[in-house]
Nucleic acid binder design. Sequence first.
DNA 1: TATGAATGAGCGTTCATTCAT
DNA 2: CATGAATGAACGCTCATTCAT
Lengths: 192, 192, 192, 192
Amino acid sequence: MQQERGKRERILEAAQTVFARKGYYQAKIEEIAELAGVGKGTVYEYFVSKEELYKEMFKVILNRYTEYVMVEATPEMTTKEWIRHLLEMHLRYMLENRQHMPTNFGDLGGMDTEILGWMYDMRKRSVNRLVPVFQKGIDRGELKGMDPELGANLLIGMMRGVTLPLMVEGTYGEPSQVAEAMTEILFHGIAR
Amino acid sequence: MQQERGKRERILEAAQTVFARKGYYQAKIEEIAELAGVGKGTVYEYFVSKEELYKEMFKVILNRYTEYVMVEATPEMTTKEWIRHLLEMHLRYMLENRQHMPTNFGDLGGMDTEILGWMYDMRKRSVNRLVPVFQKGIDRGELKGMDPELGANLLIGMMRGVTLPLMVEGTYGEPSQVAEAMTEILFHGIAR
Amino acid sequence: MQQERGKRERILEAAQTVFARKGYYQAKIEEIAELAGVGKGTVYEYFVSKEELYKEMFKVILNRYTEYVMVEATPEMTTKEWIRHLLEMHLRYMLENRQHMPTNFGDLGGMDTEILGWMYDMRKRSVNRLVPVFQKGIDRGELKGMDPELGANLLIGMMRGVTLPLMVEGTYGEPSQVAEAMTEILFHGIAR
Amino acid sequence: MQQERGKRERILEAAQTVFARKGYYQAKIEEIAELAGVGKGTVYEYFVSKEELYKEMFKVILNRYTEYVMVEATPEMTTKEWIRHLLEMHLRYMLENRQHMPTNFGDLGGMDTEILGWMYDMRKRSVNRLVPVFQKGIDRGELKGMDPELGANLLIGMMRGVTLPLMVEGTYGEPSQVAEAMTEILFHGIAR
DNA sequence: TATGAATGAGCGTTCATTCAT
DNA sequence: CATGAATGAACGCTCATTCAT
């Protein structure tokens, strides 16, 4: 029983590594099983199918990410502080987890329609978590009047826009500085 | 007599549709051939392998996109005008080509490392085409002093950030209005 | 629990039959699998590839043959007795195994260069096993002074020369008599 | 018309090279066509199928070989002289035509039953051409009383037995000397 | 007659999933 | 619960052959 929990988690972790490294279709569940130190059949003891395993693993990552990123984010912060903090933590997380959450995740592509739809839903949740932040900022008078969803989508886009090269090439120096620069642009624009 | 000079093009077009609909791994050469109205073997007369076909098709899309988006973009425009125009054309293109260039493209994911690397290179080209625009804007005094590559990456990110929901859900109304809103935010920020 | 320890053997045996009947390139893995009473995939559980299966099967045959032929061959025999025995056993074996080791084996031909090289190596082993026999015969003064390798190659050639029609047409009567005639010719020549 | 003849022969010659180099199944008729300097379809203008081309080419080789080998073979020769001559010419031919008539020919194997049967017939013709030679030798009192077919088969076997390593490894020195040694063994045996 | 673009049957191999132990 | 041997649907790719020109 104790064992059981451990196994499920080991599979999930192995799935993370392998899916990240190979992508969904190239990942073989045998390899995941091996890396997890369990038999191939055991994977099916815990997860109905490859797809289910993928989704489950994705949720785990998302949760871990969310938790990590939201640490110390308090309601007292200004919207700017909050977003700056989000950006920095995001960059830190990505930098620290290059192994487990590389380019293959993050955005859809190459997958069939069904799983793709599911992943889009996941993405939407992120947006939905961000929308109230923008709304509150607007209400408080910190932000311009604007479509909060547009803001959220732009922010998420910016994050990904900078994350991809960051992970692939490892550039961009200190997360705190990049976060600062990004925040500045997002809040005050690029115009001189 | 190369018999039906359009064959290569028909295959490319079919590849577009099928790859877009199914993603790289789920797309079957046979289906592409059928849709193109040719025999399975014919595909291999024109393309060495599935992967090569994919890349070739991707280039075609990219070119078409670039051409479409850059129409009427003149060097006399201010950076702001130029980017606003880019955004609007981008949104128009995506809206018009939901069928052929949906969520599966645009970003990596689910593919194996080799083809993924190739696609990242493609993305980099886009960035590299944008960098000089930012640089010029800075030099002209239109933009703040900033890392032009960061700017390019953020812009690309924003574009994708808003494209995805646009294509999946079809929201956001008029491209010109959304482009306007995005430009405003990019240039003057979200801060009040 | 390796489930049915005979599975590998059954596949090997089926391979024997099918490869013999159809030749390397015409033999289909699926047919071998069927004949062995296993699924197509199972073949690949035990053998990496068609080529590997072929080689493995070939070794098995060769071993069985060698074992059969060498039974009761003792060092005390004279060279003549030894060779006469070899010839007789060879003929017997071929006659008994028409099903499994027909014309397709035994010599190269029709195969691509890689596997052909491997098979030539196999042949060489046979030669190498025969050379010392000739050498000993010469040393003992039973045979003329001669290149023992030439002798070995001639003997092998003679064996095949008579085996082929034997198997295809089934003629030549009693192995012991044919062996006797062959030995007589080999040792004392055809000249009157 | 003049042209026609030339084309057919060029195809035949190319077939020789390619079949020899690759074996029947690995040879691609496209490669043969290319080497012959004709279009792929043209091959089918002259030969019904790959198999027919193979057979036709085989006959050509056989004829050329027979012609070459039988040159200067006169009825006045003793059987021994005749066979010695045959052996030497055979070795010379094989040495000179390593390119065109290598290991892949010469003996069956790897091919499917139909073509195999055909090739066995070809072989039989060789035997049938040799049988009278033995018979005559016996009648003349030059050879022992023996089954002339057995003699013929043994001789053919010996020839192949020494040809294979000769072509693969290129050993065995001067054809005339090897022929001499072989004749000596065949006529007077290996016994001291 | 000559061509080579087009074709599709055919095959080796992979891998998610099942299930007997 | 755990396992891994067994399976077979699925697919990319090849190549002998056809046929319109």
